[in-house]
Design a binder for these strands. Sequence first.
DNA 1: ACTTGCACTGCAACTCGTTGCATAGCTACG
DNA 2: CGTAGCTATGCAACGAGTTGCAGTGCAAGT
Lengths: 181, 181
Amino acid sequence: MALEHAILVSLAERASTGYDLARRFDKSIGQFWTATHQQVYKVLARMESAGWIASTHVVQDGRPDKKVYDLTADGRAELREWIAQPAEPEAARSDLAVKIRGASYGDPAAVAVEVRRHRAAHAERLEFYLTNEKREFPDPSALRGHRLHQWLVLRGGIGLERGLIDWYDEVVAALTPKGKR
Amino acid sequence: MALEHAILVSLAERASTGYDLARRFDKSIGQFWTATHQQVYKVLARMESAGWIASTHVVQDGRPDKKVYDLTADGRAELREWIAQPAEPEAARSDLAVKIRGASYGDPAAVAVEVRRHRAAHAERLEFYLTNEKREFPDPSALRGHRLHQWLVLRGGIGLERGLIDWYDEVVAALTPKGKR
DNA sequence: ACTTGCACTGCAACTCGTTGCATAGCTACG
DNA sequence: CGTAGCTATGCAACGAGTTGCAGTGCAAGT
């Protein structure tokens, strides 16, 4: 499982509540790992009883109380160890790719429409990443340490989105009858 | 769940045994969907009782008996319907990306080594895909129907691998101290 | 006044997928 | 002759992740 470790990385960057972590998994870290808030709370509870993280109860006014989690020494050690260990090259999963492959057993035109829709969604995400990059990392050559690493992962996301968009364009062109282009 | 539908696509292309499907998930279809044989057998059983597929017991000599599965009319209908339905743009998951992001909380040099290893694995897979493409699709412009769709998915895999390799190169360069390059 | 939305936490039930194990006969290698 | 590896199927137990539901209290729009 890597969710635990993704959370460790997230908490190493900044102590946070479960709610906050769940939202961050929709954004920066979420590029390469996602989780719903239920999953986050569940895993946080397990991690706390394992002693990797510790929580502080914070009373707020005008808002519900919250529990802020932070790494313990054990958590830091665990993170260090996990990072040192080899990871398996993971396999991609894509419903859409399966649909493209099976297009002739359904309606190829409908698949093309679907691919266009995904293209638009990924173009939007690419825009979002590029805007982030400009705002947060205006001078990449000066980056070091964890800021550099964050930027590198963002670059990965950007490359991935670009690759997908190119591919979708290729697919749409191939699936659209020539008269209709 | 898409494994069921990935299997439907696979069986639409060719009637197969569970064992055979599991191996094919390591190759062509496996680009965008994988499954272990246990998972395949489990899902096949469920699909058969749902009436999507039917099996024929085949006695072999010198080898264990096998069960060859093929689509039923219901299975074809289900596949057609599934293909017509919209799919959610799926989120990527990558342990390695999380490790890159967390590199400063561990050993960045060790992460660089790991990235190099993944780069090599993906370069190998890229080679494999390119060889396949040359052998199976020597003249892409002439492709139509399910052969075209297969080729398109292969193109997606090729683009993905290329994108990853480029990214890994970028990451290795950034994580390797300048003196050691 | 009413509803919608946000901040915040969590339980319960479920599905999907992995890991480990079991079985069985044939082939090929040293 | 023994052992490793392939073809072939499957069960049992577990872990990871999703979906649905539940509750509180404030702010802001209609």
